[in-house]
Simulated scan of single mutants.
Amino acid sequence: MSKILVTGSAGFIGMHTAIRLAADGHQITGLDNLNTYYSVELKMARLKQQGIDTSQVMYNKEMTGTKGISFIQLDLTDSEHIEALFEKHQFDYVIHLAAQAGVRYSIENPHAYIDSNVKGFLNILEASQRNKVKHLVYASSSSVYGMNDKVPFEETDTTETQVSLYAATKKANEAIAHSYASVHGLPLTGLRFFTVYGPWGRPDMALFKFTKNILAGKPIDVYNEGNLSRDFTYVDDIVEGIVQLVPKKPVATLPYAIYNIGNGNPVKLMDFIACLEKELGKKAILNMMPMQLGDVEKTWASTCALQDLTGYKPEITLDEGMKNFVAWYNQYNNR
């Protein structure tokens, strides 16, 4: 049994990761600041899935849940309390998933991204190296590939053309992590996530917004006239990849690595919408739009490196994943 910190545990991927690791017998501490970027009610519902009594949540109060997961509400920028948490628990591993997400919002509120994604990440790195964490796995993003037109995207590709501040902060994370691996010998692995979807997903993501509007008979915004493709990856496949990777810290002279984690099978946006229409039994009203500022036309992950290391192989098809999401959405919204 290992002691593992999962940051962003009230988030989409964080919730699923914490539950899976606790089920595997590990001692999990979840951390989240519960900010209002999107529904705090949804975040609280995710915590309830982890056995946390949300009526008792308050800042810097650690709570023990009923499913082997404890939780503490902390902000990543609170270096004093972050350090105290690490000193108290002496975590074996850290899975750092907390971040300010969203491409559009990074244009509207850039300071939130520097505070959370850069300053906050630095605090996690400092606490990890001081307390001798065995391996820190952190969330990067496929958005670091920016305007790269070579597909599939490979970890060795140049990543110098980010088109949003969110993407730039994730690229900065990779550079800062490299420096900490070099200077402190802290084992660090970044995972470039590719369009994760599934039950308990974020309301600001396309699948959630599309489902809500289609069911309400409202138009959905389809950017770049529908000429987009994404490497949609089901959340359970993502979690499996994370779980497999955690004990496999980099063993090279420089203990630093970057891996894509995606499905490896890009889907055209219009095909994605058609799959959702089929599952909902209802046609979408399409509002065809120009390219969204800060967006890219396509993403496609080469996952060969991660597969060679861990045997990672996504198993959930788009049809199955969509079915699972719609079933959860209807249940969550009492439909």
Rank of each mutant, 00 (worst) to 15 (best):
M1H: 10
K3G: 00
T7N: 03
T17Y: 01
L21K: 01
A23S: 15
L31R: 06
V40D: 08
V40S: 03
E41H: 10
E41N: 14
K43H: 00
M44T: 00
A45D: 08
L47H: 04
K48H: 00
Q50P: 00
T54R: 10
T64D: 00
G65T: 08
G68F: 03
F71M: 11
F71I: 13
L74S: 11
L74C: 10
E83Q: 12
H89Q: 07
V94A: 02
H96W: 04
A99Y: 02
A101M: 02
E108C: 09
H111C: 15
G120A: 13
F121S: 06
F121Y: 03
E126M: 14
E126T: 15
N131R: 07
K134N: 11
L136G: 04
S141D: 07
G146D: 10
K150H: 14
V151C: 01
T161W: 03
L165A: 07
K171Q: 13
K171G: 13
N173V: 01
E174M: 02
A177E: 05
A181K: 10
S182V: 11
L188H: 05
R192F: 08
F193W: 10
V196C: 10
P199F: 04
L207I: 10
F208Y: 07
T211S: 08
I214G: 06
I214F: 09
K218G: 04
K218P: 13
E225F: 15
N227S: 10
S229E: 14
D231A: 13
D236N: 15
D237S: 07
I238E: 02
I238V: 14
V239H: 00
E240H: 14
G241F: 06
Q244W: 13
L245P: 14
A252I: 03
T253V: 07
Y256W: 11
N265E: 05
V267M: 05
V267S: 05
L269T: 04
I273Q: 03
A274I: 01
C275H: 05
L280D: 08
A284G: 08
M288S: 12
L293C: 01
G294T: 05
D295Q: 12
W300P: 13
A301L: 05
A301K: 09
S302R: 04
S302N: 15
A305R: 10
L306P: 02
K313Q: 12
L318Q: 08
G321A: 13
N324V: 00
A327D: 12
R335M: 13
